[in-house]
């Protein structure tokens, strides 16, 4: 055996050692009673007589060298075991954490539910014409339903959309059914700015046009939605409603989460609380667009309203004041 190679191998192995156990194994391997060096020393007897003293000298120096290295390594390992005392209860070096707006968080959640149901996300303009916002939606000038939506008009005669429903018309003008779409965005109504009103609000609109769509499809879809957003056990019901562009029309209610159906001031003692309006698309709208053989349903919900119910927020203005103390509470994104 080449003594030098032996020494080099041993040094490399000692160098690689990471634990006390490993070090002991290496020591036994090279220096133990049945170790490699013992074998080497025994084999010296086989050498010619004149080479024996020199070989013995080298072997002993290797032995000493390795013993020294192992001792050093032991000290290094020992040193690594104890660290300087630090106060580990100090706070960590935390990077800044930003948050998404609750209307974004919830809007995404709602959209994703409908995307899973096969709906596509589309968009429409916030500045609309009277035609798309009202007339095309069966609400001609002088229609009393216009009273329900006090409108912001622009000096150029256009208006700020009061609902996302114009998107229905714009999409159907470009895409023929069958289709399922969802659209979300800002809408505007001339309201006071108080705990329950805001001149700006976020609406999510859905539309499903196909052949043979019924109220059963509408109720089934919206019930699924409510369960996804408010939990499997949420009680929902539908009441008749009125929108000029749907017939029949309905409103969806869920069990009031504040009183769990007992009746409180939020639900006006009814135990149920409205979350959205919906209905089958008025046939005259589809007819005008050239889709007489189709029918469908549409629904629209205010994201603020859903958020207020879901997160127990009692003042709609909080959504538009952007106080960090408010925004920081919505981290589920």
């Amino acid at each position: 055996m080449n003594l030098n190679a032996f020494r080099e191998n041993a040094k490399i192995e000692i160098e690689k050692v990471k634990t006390d156990g490993e070090l002991e194994k290496v020591r036994v391997k090279y220096l133990g009673r049945k170790g490699n060096l013992t074998e080497v020393l025994h084999s010296i007897g086989d050498l010619p007589k004149e080479e024996r003293p020199e070989a013995g000298r080298i072997a002993n120096s290797i032995k000493r060298e390795l013993e020294e290295l192992i001792k050093e390594k032991k000290e290094i390992l020992e040193e690594k075991k104890t660290l300087l005392w630090k106060d580990l209860t100090l706070p960590g070096r935390k990077p800044f954490i930003g948050t998404l707006h609750p209307l974004t968080v919830l809007g995404e959640e709602v959209q994703d539910i409908f995307i899973r149901m096969g709906f596509s996300v589309v968009e429409g303009p916030e500045i609309e014409t009277d035609y798309y916002n009202f007339t095309a939606l069966n609400t001609p000038p002088d229609h009393p339903a216009r009273d329900l939506q006090d409108t912001f008009y622009l000096k150029d005669g256009r208006l700020l959309r009061t609902q996302t429903s114009p998107v229905q018309i714009r999409i159907l003008e470009k895409h023929s059914p069958p289709l399922r779409i969802i659209s979300s965005g800002k809408c505007y109504r001339m309201d006071t700015f108080d705990p329950s009103h805001s001149p700006t609000f976020t609406q999510i609109e859905g539309l499903w046009v196909d052949k043979n769509i019924s109220m059963a499809d509408l109720f089934g879809t919206l019930e699924l939605f409510a369960k996804e957003i408010f939990g499997e056990n949420i009680k929902t019901e539908f009441l008749p409603g009125y929108f000029p562009f749907t017939e029949p029309s309905c409103e969806q209610l869920i069990q009031c989460p504040f009183c769990l159906g007992e009746g409180c001031s939020v639900c006006k003692k009814k135990g149920m609380i409205e979350i959205l309006g919906a209905g089958l698309v008025h046939p005259s709208i589809l007819k005008k667009l050239g889709y007489s053989e189709f029918n469908g349903f549409a629904f629209g919900m205010g994201v603020e309203r859903i958020a207020m119910i879901k997160y127990n927020i009692d003042d709609i203005r909080l959504f538009y004041q952007n106080e960090l103390q408010f925004l920081r509470q919505f981290n589920e994104s």
């Binding site: 995307i115 149901m117 096969g118 709906f119 596509s120 996300v121 589309v122 968009e123 999409i171 895409h175 069958p178 289709l179 399922r180 779409i181 019924s214 109220m215 059963a216 499809d217 109720f219 089934g220 879809t221 019930e223 699924l224 539908f238």
Partner: peptide, 15 residues
């Protein structure tokens, strides 16, 4: 009125 939901195989518009 009964509740019904059917899935679709249609390709989404994804505008």
């Amino acid at each position: 009125i009964p509740r019904r939901f059917t899935y679709t195989n249609e390709k989404p518009i994804n505008l």
